[in-house]
Amino acid sequence: MSEQLKVKTMQEFMAEGKQPEILFWVGSAGSYDDRAKKITRAFVKLLNKAEVDFAVLGTEESSTGDLAKRAGNEFLFQMQAMMNIELLNGYEIKRIVTCDPHSFNTLKNEYPGLGGNYDVVHHTQYLKELIDQGRLTVKGEGYKGKRITFHDPCYLGRANSVYEAPRELLSKTNAELVEMKRHKKTALCCGAGGAQMFKEPEKGDMDINVMRTKDALETQPNIIATGCPYCNTMMTDGIKAHEKEDSVTVLDVAEVLANSLNL
């Protein structure tokens, strides 16, 4: 059904005696979760379009351990981290890009203390870089007249102060970017962080994702864009809870961009 993506593993690069421009860290969600896999594919299409010489770890990639760390299991986190660092250092990786803000955060901030020093960027930052360098051009007539609101993922925004890159990308598509009342530093969490994604919420009177989608719906959007596979799931479920799945779509910034290029 879909056209062939060009994806090479680090092993293949090694066999050719070459180094990639960047390593694409796909992450567990991006590898296994059906919705997140679409984001992974959209991002790879953009990489292919810009003719980026990138590699993935493929079956050698393993969980960053971020989830374990947020849940309090420092042992499991450091085991995963050291395993990954051994692999990454063995391949002499310099630069990593990922679509998952949680992987982004831990690779960038927590791996250095354990011996893993890389230049880590989020895919929205990397895509902006490609556009700035003229390697990727966005025309985006398809989004004319559409309203997009951007939900800041906690681990991209507050945790690492990346607010502008995703917004700049979205504004390139000719869509109208509308902000929620709470955005950037004061954005409300989608409810997935801190390993909440994997458990039932504690007793309360509302689910966090339902509250956050309410924020988003108040802007009357056609599209809720985000930059995190977990936020994506939470917001999608939230839209369903508000019975708005027919009029509002939840998309990753990479998907918005890929769509605008008819990829």
């Binding site: 507050r158 969490c189 919420p201 309360g204």
Partner: peptide
């Protein structure tokens, strides 16, 4: 266990 580690409190 109810914390999402979102950092809103810290901010």
């Amino acid at each position: 266990w109810a914390c999402t580690t979102c950092n809103a409190c810290v901010e």
